[in-house]
Structure formats: C-alpha cells, structure tokens
C-alpha cells in the first residue's frame, strides 16, 4: 500500500476509534451518575444480573431483524412470529411432552416457517415488504389467538404457560446463549460471504447484481438466518418469562418495539460501529434506560416509552452532529 493510502486509511480508523471510545465513555459516565442518583441500585450486583438477562431479548431479536432488514426488507411481522412460535413451542413442551427438542423446534422452526412465508410474499411476489409484513402479522396473530382459544377449552386458560424446560431462560445460560449468538452474528455479518453480499444488496442493489450477486437468494438466506436468531430469542424469552400472550390487532408490534429502538439507536451510531455492534450498544442503551426509569419510579407504558422515543431521537442527533450533507 502506498504511504498516502496508508495515511488516509489510518486517519479514518483513528476517527472511528475516537468515536467508539466517546460513545462507550458517555454510556459508562451516565450509568455511574444514575447509579448514585438511584441510591446505588443501578450497578448493584443483583440489578446487573437482572439487566444482563433483560438485555438479551432486544439484543437477539434486534440481531435477527438486522439480518432481515439489511437486505432492504422491512418486515414488521416478527413480533407476531415470535408470539405464534413461542406458543407452539410451549404447547410442544406442555401438551405433547416433547421437552427441550420440542421447545427449540417449536420456537425456532415456527419463526423460520413464518418468516419464509412473509419474506417470500415480498421477494417472489413483489409485494412491498412492509405490506407483506403487516399482512402476515395479522395472519400470525390470528392463528396464535385461535390456537390459544382452542386450547383454553381444555385447560381453562387462554395463555399457554411454560412450566417445564425453563433452564435456557436462567442465569448464566441465557447470557451465554446471547453471547454466542452475538459472536456468530458478528462474524456472519461482517466476515462471511453472506453478510458482505447482504450489505451490498441492501445498499446498492444494482451494483451488487452487476457484480454477479443473486439478490433474491441472498435476501432469502439472510431472512432464514435472521429467523433462526429470532427463534433463539423467542426460546430464551419464553424460558425466562414462561409465556407469550397471544394478541390481535397488531398488538404484537409492541413486542418488538424495544428491538426496533435498539436497531435505530445502533444505526444512528453507524459511522462508528458495524451493525451488529450497533445493535449490541443500542439494545444495552434501551435496556438500561428502562431499568433506570423503573428505578426512578417512572410509570411503565406511556412515560417510559415516551422517554425511549426521545432518547432514540437524541442518539440520532448526537451521532450525526457535524455530519454535513449536500443541499440538493
């Protein structure tokens, strides 16, 4: 490499590293300040354990969504997929006695099946992905509600409770699973042929096709990988909470709100972090924020979510500070 090219490359990397250190530093400082403001609760060992467990769900769902969204699809049916697959997994365990294989098969297999239906509608039939996603969400929500209602006749409850096979939602297994999934997702996205092709397809579809990349195949395989990750997230969350409540009328969107916020926050730091690390940082910010608000006694629901929205916007503003674009 020529000296000039080396200097330019090193300069860019230095700026990136500076940005990364500043972001991580600011997060740590805020956490320390909040720790004292909450009377030493935030960073207490007990709360840190709770935090780390709560961090896993937005992280895993966010990573799955990252693979699905990066190819250009906006699939909002993921919350509904998780609800349907989670209930199938719980039924496999509780009603059919299939144990862990049933739990994993129901959750991961269910999400894969649902995501393939939703993605195929968009990729092969040319339906805009957000339309296909919303349509699919209504269908998946309805199926989950029908299954749970039908089961309530026999059990007396419209909610399928997972009483057995809950180890995957306990500490430290849930953290270990999330860490492994993050590592795999990181390398798949940044260092594998699929991940690099996916990024090319998402940001420059015409160029990528001209370079011989099969756009449809890449999107579908990425959606499959994303579905597996969402499925793992569904499994751990079901094991942690013990239930997925079926809902209708697009209520499932609320289930992916934190993950969406994590992706948006992560994307706003896109100049400094690769997408998987962005999701990791974003999901941490979201989880910590909710935790802090709860410790401060802010009512859950409207006020907490209003604050989250404001923080997402603030992160976007701060991350794009001093970035200049051309006025067209």
């Amino acid at each position: 490499m020529s000296d000039k090219a080396k200097v330019l490359g090193a300069d860019q990397k230095r700026k990136r590293l500076q940005g990364q250190l500043i972001i991580v530093g600011v997060i740590i400082v805020i956490c320390v300040i909040c720790h004292f403001c909450t009377g030493g609760k935030l960073l207490s060992p007990v709360n840190l354990k709770v935090l780390s467990i709560q961090w896993t769900y937005p992280l895993l769902i966010g990573l799955g969504m990252m693979f699905i969204f990066s190819g250009g699809m906006v699939d909002l049916s993921i919350g509904a997929q998780a609800i349907l697959a989670g209930n199938i997994g719980a039924i496999f365990v509780e009603d059919f006695g299939l144990g862990y294989p049933g739990l994993i098969l129901g959750c991961i297999g269910g999400v894969i099946l649902c995501e393939m239906v939703s993605a195929s509608c968009s990729v092969f039939f040319g339906i805009p992905s957000w339309v296909a996603g919303l349509g699919s969400a209504l269908v998946f929500e309805a199926i989950a509600t029908i299954i749970c209602s039908a089961r309530s006749g026999a059990t007396g409850s419209a909610v399928v409770y997972l009483k057995n096979c809950r180890v995957l939602g306990t500490f430290p297994w849930i953290i270990l699973i999330a860490a492994i999934v993050f590592a795999v997702a990181y390398f798949l996205f940044n260092r594998s042929k699929l991940g690099l092709n996916l990024q090319a397809v998402g940001s420059a579809p015409e160029v990528s096709e001209a370079m011989g990349i099969n756009r449809r195949k890449t999107i579908i395989i990425a959606a499959l990988v994303g579905a597996v990750i969402v499925g793992i997230g569904t499994t751990t969350q079901l094991s942690y909470t013990g239930r997925y409540t079926a809902m209708s009328g697009m209520g499932s969107l609320a289930g992916i709100f934190k993950s969406l916020a994590a992706i948006l926050t992560g994307q706003s730091f896109g100049k400094y972090f690769s997408n998987p690390v962005g999701v990791l940082v974003g999901s941490f910010i979201v989880t910590v924020l909710f935790n802090i608000l709860t410790l401060f006694g802010v009512p859950s629901g409207t006020y907490q979510e209003m604050t989250l929205g404001a923080v997402v916007i603030l992160c976007g503003i701060l991350a794009s500070w001093k970035i200049k674009g051309v006025v067209k």
Partner: peptide, 29 residues
C-alpha cells in the same frame, strides 16, 4: 460510479467472487 458505499474498497473489488477467499464459513479479508 458503481460501488457499494458502506463496504471497504477491498470487499468492493471482490464482490461476487468471494468463493476463493472463503476460510470455512468466513472470508479472509
């Protein structure tokens, strides 16, 4: 201009031809 902006120049140069750089599931950047 036909480049994929977010990917590095080196990756851009071998888009569609990554097979020969595969080391297991990863690509040798």
């Amino acid at each position: 201009l036909g480049v994929v902006g977010p990917l590095t120049g080196a990756i851009n140069m071998f888009l569609g031809e990554m097979e020969k750089y595969k080391k297991g599931p990863l690509v040798d950047l």
